[in-house]
Write a protein that binds this DNA or RNA. Structure first.
Length: 129
DNA sequence: GCCATGACGTTCC
DNA sequence: GGGAACGCCATGG
């Protein structure tokens, strides 16, 4: 498995309870901006007994990317609701309210991720409503 | 090694 | 503000 897959999982584990992150954000923090699709691919490969909170990862629209008819989307919505994340009419989460600030990862991860953080600060924008 | 696919993102209509 | 088109990176055939 490529190192950055592990980075992705590590980033997702750092998402605090009750907060959500976007695929693009996770991709940037993992060190590969633009690899949002790959993040989804990595999460799809997670086993059922994983400790990675994959349900806290949504797309840029704050909506669940899984097919609505898929059972996984139901589980994801339920898990988020259990953590206090509310869904607006239409099934979208207010990222401005529940979105995970990228700065929080710098604090949580400490010094051994400054490469990713410097890369992030270069393009820290968007997602702010 | 090339082509198609996918839990996405950004930019133009 | 909503929808369509193109771009992105990694995997699988």
């Amino acid at each position: 498995m490529n190192p950055f897959y592990h980075r992705i999982y590590r980033v997702v584990r750092h998402i605090p309870k009750g907060r959500v992150a976007t695929y693009g954000l996770v991709a940037r923090l993992a060190g590969r901006p633009g690899a949002a699709r790959t993040v989804g691919w990595a999460l799809s490969a997670l086993p059922d007994d994983t400790d990675v909170p994959w349900w806290r990862v949504l797309n840029a629209a704050g909506r669940i990317s899984l097919a609505a008819h898929d059972h996984g989307s139901v589980v994801q919505r339920a898990l988020l609701l259990r953590e206090g994340v509310t869904f607006a009419p239409g099934g979208a989460v207010n990222l401005g309210m529940f979105g995970w600030p990228a700065e929080a990862y710098d604090t949580a991860a400490g010094a051994h991720t400054r490469a990713a953080s410097s890369r992030r600060s270069r393009r820290s924008r968007g997602l702010r409503t």
